[in-house]
């Protein structure tokens, strides 16, 4: 098991947002974490990445206990998050943004990885010297993902990659995530876009009010009329 979370509790002191989450990600999987606004998805993300302290429970990454590890060590271990909302560094160039992705990890192969990213996103190569803040929304999302990939993740956490993108770009984004996974990358996909996520995910979890109320395959989720109504509106 790549990532193993057991009865994790966390949040913003003193408020507990995550009230005992148990889940796992296997090597090579895409796992979707679904849930409405405020369900605790981003809190889960940030707690796993060590940005917020866990109140209780355990997080293991490749067998190692990382519950109390610093975020710098977690990134160095290869658990890398692409934060929500295309948080690129607007005043740095595209190239500088990408290079920053490889400071904790993957420095030896930085130039090869850069080539890979540019092959994946040719637009970024065209704009390598441009300031990241001048890119379009879709390009910034590509840059944010590219920057995450520069650190050679073992597990990539994508927080709402489709947020604020046009419908066409959303399609492209999910196609890309699928392709990355087919090339062997394990992905934890945290999304509100339920339909698209279920198309590419192997398994899914649904969070509500800080607890899981579903886990299983997309087919099982779609077969459950209650959840289907609650989360898909159909």
């Amino acid at each position: 098991m790549l990532l193993e979370i057991s009865s994790l509790r966390g949040g913003y002191k003193p408020i507990e947002v995550l009230r005992g989450i148990t889940m796992h990600v296997d090597d090579g999987e895409i796992v979707a974490v679904l849930g409405s606004n405020g369900a605790g998805k981003s809190t889960l993300n940030n707690t796993v990445c060590g940005l917020f302290p866990a109140f209780g429970g355990e997080i293991r990454f490749e067998g190692r206990d990382i519950t109390r590890a610093r975020h710098t060590d977690i990134v160095a271990a290869g658990l890398i998050q692409v934060p929500e909302g295309r948080r690129v560094f607007p005043n740095l160039s595209v190239l500088e943004n990408l290079r920053l992705g490889s400071y904790r990890r993957g420095r030896e192969r930085r130039e090869q990885n850069l080539e890979k990213i540019f092959a994946l996103f040719p637009r970024l190569r065209e704009r390598a010297e441009q300031r990241a803040g001048t890119l379009s929304g879709g390009e910034q999302q590509m840059l944010a993902i590219g920057r995450g990939l520069m650190g050679e993740p073992r597990l990539l956490i994508l927080d709402e990659p489709s947020l604020g993108l046009s419908p066409l770009l959303v399609e492209e984004m999910f196609a890309l995530i699928k392709r990355l996974n087919e090339d062997g990358l394990s992905i934890l996909l945290v999304e509100q876009n339920v339909g698209q996520s279920l198309e590419i995910a192997r398994r899914a979890y649904v969070i509500e009010n800080g607890v899981l109320n579903f886990e299983g395959t997309p087919a099982e989720l779609l077969a459950n009329p209650q959840l289907k109504r609650a989360y898909l509106g159909i």
Binding site: L51, I74, A76, L100, Y103
Partner: peptide, 14 residues
């Protein structure tokens, strides 16, 4: 400069 532009993203990169 990364911290200046976006502290959260900088932390996410380690």
């Amino acid at each position: 400069q990364a911290v200046r532009d976006n502290e959260e993203s900088a932390s996410a990169l380690g």
